[in-house]
Deep mutational scan, measured.
Amino acid sequence: EADPRLIESLSQMLSMGFSDEGGWLTRLLQTKNYDIGAALDTIQYSKHPPPL
């Protein structure tokens, strides 16, 4: 049985245009305790590393 928090967070992320191919988004949301903001921060950080 999927956690209702996961279903809600995942559906919101999917509606933003993200995909869960391979389950990466599910794993990220689980790691971030279903916090969409924290997940988005992680995605943003990985796409744009800080300048040295």
Score class of each variant (00 low, 15 high):
Glu1Thr: 06
Glu1Gly: 09
Glu1Trp: 02
Glu1Gln: 00
Glu1Asn: 03
Glu1Tyr: 05
Ala2Ser: 15
Ala2Gly: 15
Ala2Lys: 11
Ala2Ile: 14
Ala2Asn: 10
Ala2Gln: 14
Ala2Arg: 11
Ala2Leu: 10
Ala2Pro: 09
Asp3Leu: 02
Asp3Ala: 02
Asp3Phe: 03
Asp3Ser: 05
Asp3Val: 03
Asp3Cys: 02
Asp3Thr: 02
Pro4Leu: 09
Pro4Trp: 06
Pro4Thr: 09
Pro4Ser: 12
Pro4Val: 06
Pro4Gly: 05
Pro4Arg: 09
Arg5Asp: 08
Arg5Ala: 08
Arg5Ser: 07
Arg5His: 05
Arg5Leu: 06
Arg5Val: 04
Arg5Cys: 01
Arg5Phe: 06
Arg5Gln: 10
Leu6Trp: 00
Leu6Gln: 07
Leu6Ile: 09
Leu6Asn: 02
Leu6Glu: 09
Ile7Gln: 11
Ile7Pro: 09
Ile7Val: 11
Ile7Arg: 12
Ile7Thr: 15
Glu8Ser: 13
Glu8Pro: 09
Glu8Cys: 05
Glu8Tyr: 11
Glu8Phe: 09
Glu8Asn: 14
Ser9Thr: 11
Ser9Trp: 03
Ser9Asp: 03
Leu10His: 04
Leu10Cys: 01
Leu10Asp: 01
Leu10Pro: 00
Leu10Thr: 02
Leu10Gln: 06
Ser11Val: 06
Ser11Lys: 15
Ser11Gln: 14
Ser11Tyr: 03
Ser11Leu: 05
Ser11Cys: 07
Ser11Asp: 08
Ser11Pro: 01
Gln12Trp: 05
Gln12Glu: 14
Gln12Ile: 14
Gln12Pro: 01
Gln12Tyr: 12
Met13Pro: 01
Met13Ala: 03
Met13His: 00
Met13Asp: 01
Met13Lys: 01
Met13Gln: 00
Met13Phe: 05
Leu14Asn: 13
Leu14Arg: 09
Leu14Trp: 06
Leu14Lys: 14
Leu14Ser: 10
Leu14Ile: 09
Ser15Glu: 15
Ser15Ile: 05
Ser15Met: 14
Ser15Thr: 14
Ser15His: 15
Ser15Asn: 15
Ser15Arg: 12
Met16Ser: 03
Met16Ile: 06
Met16Pro: 00
Met16Tyr: 10
Met16Gly: 03
Met16His: 08
Gly17Thr: 02
Gly17Val: 01
Gly17Cys: 00
Gly17Ile: 00
Gly17Lys: 02
Gly17Asn: 08
Gly17Tyr: 01
Phe18His: 05
Phe18Ala: 04
Phe18Met: 07
Phe18Gly: 01
Ser19Phe: 08
Ser19Gln: 08
Ser19Met: 10
Ser19Val: 14
Ser19Gly: 07
Ser19Asp: 14
Ser19His: 13
Ser19Glu: 14
Ser19Trp: 01
Asp20Arg: 00
Asp20Gly: 01
Asp20Cys: 01
Asp20Phe: 02
Asp20Leu: 00
Asp20His: 01
Glu21Met: 02
Glu21Trp: 00
Glu21Ile: 00
Glu21Ser: 09
Glu21Leu: 02
Gly22Ile: 00
Gly22Arg: 07
Gly22Trp: 00
Gly22Ser: 11
Gly22Glu: 11
Gly22Ala: 05
Gly22Leu: 01
Gly22His: 04
Gly22Cys: 06
Gly22Tyr: 01
Gly22Met: 01
Gly22Gln: 07
Gly23Arg: 06
Gly23Gln: 09
Gly23Lys: 08
Gly23Leu: 03
Gly23Phe: 00
Gly23Asp: 02
Gly23Pro: 01
Trp24Met: 10
Trp24Lys: 15
Trp24His: 13
Trp24Gln: 11
Trp24Ala: 10
Trp24Asp: 11
Leu25Met: 07
Leu25Ile: 06
Leu25Gly: 01
Leu25Pro: 02
Leu25His: 04
Leu25Trp: 12
Leu25Thr: 03
Leu25Ser: 01
Leu25Asp: 03
Thr26Gln: 05
Thr26Glu: 03
Thr26Val: 02
Thr26Met: 02
Thr26Leu: 01
Arg27Tyr: 06
Arg27Ala: 11
Arg27Pro: 07
Arg27Trp: 05
Arg27Met: 04
Arg27Thr: 10
Arg27Val: 04
Arg27Asp: 09
Leu28Gln: 02
Leu29Asn: 02
Leu29Lys: 02
Leu29Ser: 03
Leu29Glu: 05
Gln30Tyr: 06
Gln30Asp: 02
Thr31Gln: 14
Thr31His: 10
Thr31Val: 13
Thr31Glu: 10
Lys32Trp: 04
Lys32Pro: 02
Lys32Gln: 11
Lys32His: 10
Lys32Phe: 04
Lys32Tyr: 13
Lys32Ala: 08
Asn33Pro: 00
Asn33Thr: 04
Asn33Leu: 03
Asn33Met: 06
Asn33Gln: 09
Tyr34Asp: 02
Tyr34Leu: 04
Tyr34Asn: 08
Tyr34Glu: 03
Tyr34Ser: 06
Tyr34Gln: 04
Tyr34Met: 07
Tyr34Phe: 12
Tyr34Val: 04
Asp35Arg: 03
Asp35Asn: 15
Asp35Glu: 08
Asp35Gly: 01
Asp35Tyr: 00
Ile36Leu: 10
Ile36Gly: 05
Ile36Ala: 08
Ile36Lys: 05
Ile36Glu: 05
Ile36Trp: 05
Ile36Cys: 10
Ile36Met: 08
Gly37Asp: 13
Gly37Arg: 15
Gly37Gln: 10
Gly37Lys: 15
Gly37Thr: 11
Gly37Ala: 12
Ala38Met: 10
Ala38Glu: 11
Ala39Glu: 02
Ala39His: 00
Ala39Asp: 04
Ala39Thr: 12
Ala39Met: 00
Ala39Trp: 00
Ala39Asn: 01
Leu40His: 04
Leu40Asn: 02
Leu40Phe: 05
Leu40Ile: 13
Asp41Ser: 12
Asp41Asn: 10
Asp41Met: 07
Asp41Gln: 14
Asp41Leu: 07
Asp41His: 12
Thr42Gly: 08
Thr42Cys: 12
Thr42Leu: 06
Thr42Lys: 06
Thr42Pro: 01
Thr42Asp: 15
Thr42Glu: 13
Thr42Asn: 08
Thr42Met: 08
Ile43Tyr: 03
Ile43Asn: 03
Ile43Gln: 02
Ile43Ala: 05
Ile43Lys: 03
Gln44Thr: 14
Gln44Phe: 11
Gln44Lys: 15
Tyr45Cys: 14
Tyr45Arg: 15
Tyr45Lys: 14
Tyr45Pro: 09
Tyr45Asn: 15
Tyr45Glu: 15
Ser46Val: 10
Ser46Asn: 12
Ser46Pro: 12
Ser46Ala: 11
Ser46Asp: 13
Ser46Lys: 12
Ser46Thr: 13
Ser46Trp: 10
Lys47Ile: 09
Lys47Cys: 08
Lys47His: 11
Lys47Met: 09
Lys47Trp: 04
Lys47Asn: 14
Lys47Asp: 13
Lys47Gln: 12
Lys47Gly: 13
His48Asn: 13
His48Thr: 14
His48Val: 14
His48Pro: 14
His48Gly: 13
His48Gln: 15
Pro49Ala: 12
Pro49Asp: 15
Pro49Leu: 14
Pro49Met: 07
Pro49Cys: 12
Pro49Ser: 12
Pro49Tyr: 15
Pro49Asn: 12
Pro50Phe: 07
Pro50Val: 08
Pro50Tyr: 09
Pro50Cys: 11
Pro50Trp: 07
Pro50Ala: 13
Pro50Leu: 10
Pro51Trp: 08
Pro51Met: 12
Pro51Gln: 11
Pro51Lys: 10
Pro51Cys: 13
Pro51Thr: 14
Pro51Arg: 13
Pro51Tyr: 14
Leu52Ile: 05
Leu52Met: 12
Leu52Phe: 08
Leu52His: 15
Leu52Asp: 11
Leu52Lys: 15
Leu52Thr: 15
Leu52Ala: 15
